[in-house]
Simulated assay, not measured.
Amino acid sequence: MVRAMTSQPGNAKLAQIAREAGVSLSTASKVLNNRPGVSDATRKRIEALLEKNGYRRRRRTEQTTTTMVELLLDDLDTPWSEEILSGVLAGLNKPYVPIISARTSEDWNISDWLEEVLARKSAGVIIPLFEFPKEAEERLARSGIPTVLVDPTGEVPKNVPTVGSNDYIGVREATEYLIAQGHTRIAFIGGPTYLQTAASRLDGFRGAMRQAGIAVDPMLVTSGEFRYEDGSEHARGLLALPNPPTAIFAASDMQAAGVYAVAWERGLKIPDDLSVVGFDDLPTSRMLLPPLTTVHHAVREMAQFGATTLMQLLEGKGGSMPTHIELTTNLIVRQSVRKLP
């Protein structure tokens, strides 16, 4: 019978055993906790080292995992979250099913969520658009629960697989398109300044303007959350300026939808009176009138690829996979930008 093992006081640390075996701490934890996702040859090598260092075996039935995969979302009722969920469902194999958690309450904290994940003995974790604290990385690694980050917002952990996109290039290409249409007074509504993704999008905008020799007016650069309300709030301020912009680049499609609403309130026509560009290419961008020119961010594709990556880890096929995967972005030209005379 295959048995799981537990450590005793005075035994070598699991991290030392992982180094000696030439594997990550997460892989060593999987073997210790009898979790899937490790090749037979590697499992045997780690088990031999565990026994050599005095780890005692216990019955496998004492530690079992479920077929639940944790999906941690920022919100539940946004088109972005719907795209993430659709992608994850497309990427998961039977019998695995997602258990959805959301950071919707003010008193939410990752420590409590981790306790719930460990109590459920979940098979794996997918976390989109979230800065992954070291505490969470280490706890999940020690538990042997494989984790994949989708569109990570902060510093990317070395040993955690990630799926993202090149936001800088996407925004730069879209800004160059606006400039090619004759726009020089371009406003930019960015995302939260503490997010790496928001910083990359702002850098892409500034880079394209600098390359074109166009000075960026500080009055035209604002930041907020990637939400409808933030787009409308900042659009009101921008369009009330004595010399308003001829184009607004919103760092998310939801912000762009807020810009549309304010333009309608002020009796402005898009694109005749104001050109607008978004970022994400959510279904919302196609429903706006006129349809929104935006950067395809491959949200659903990233989520699907993240779920597929997790499946490979659970099936022990992750050894040949790249740790960090970056999908390309591309500009989707629709009807929200006017070419100036």
Rank of each mutant, 00 (worst) to 15 (best):
S105M: 13
L129V: 11
R19I: 01
V333C: 07
R201G: 03
V333R: 14
A250S: 11
T147C: 15
I189R: 00
G258I: 12
G224A: 03
D40S: 15
Q181F: 07
M287A: 14
T162H: 09
G124S: 06
I46A: 10
A298Q: 13
M311T: 09
E229C: 02
S320M: 05
W108Q: 06
E20A: 13
H183Y: 07
G306V: 04
V333F: 04
L239D: 02
A15W: 05
T27L: 12
I110G: 01
V262F: 03
S101T: 15
L73C: 04
T246G: 15
G231C: 02
E106F: 05
K94F: 07
Y260C: 05
T175C: 05
S165F: 03
A261Q: 15
K52F: 06
N166G: 07
P242L: 09
A119R: 13
T147Q: 05
V88L: 10
Y55G: 06
P157L: 09
E116N: 08
Y194N: 10
E265I: 13
I110P: 00
W113A: 11
T147I: 10
S81T: 08
V163S: 01
E138V: 13
A174I: 12
M254G: 00
F188V: 02
L340P: 05
V69I: 15
L238C: 11
V276T: 01
L89S: 04
I145P: 00
S29N: 06
I332T: 03
L114P: 00
N109K: 11
T323C: 03
T284F: 04
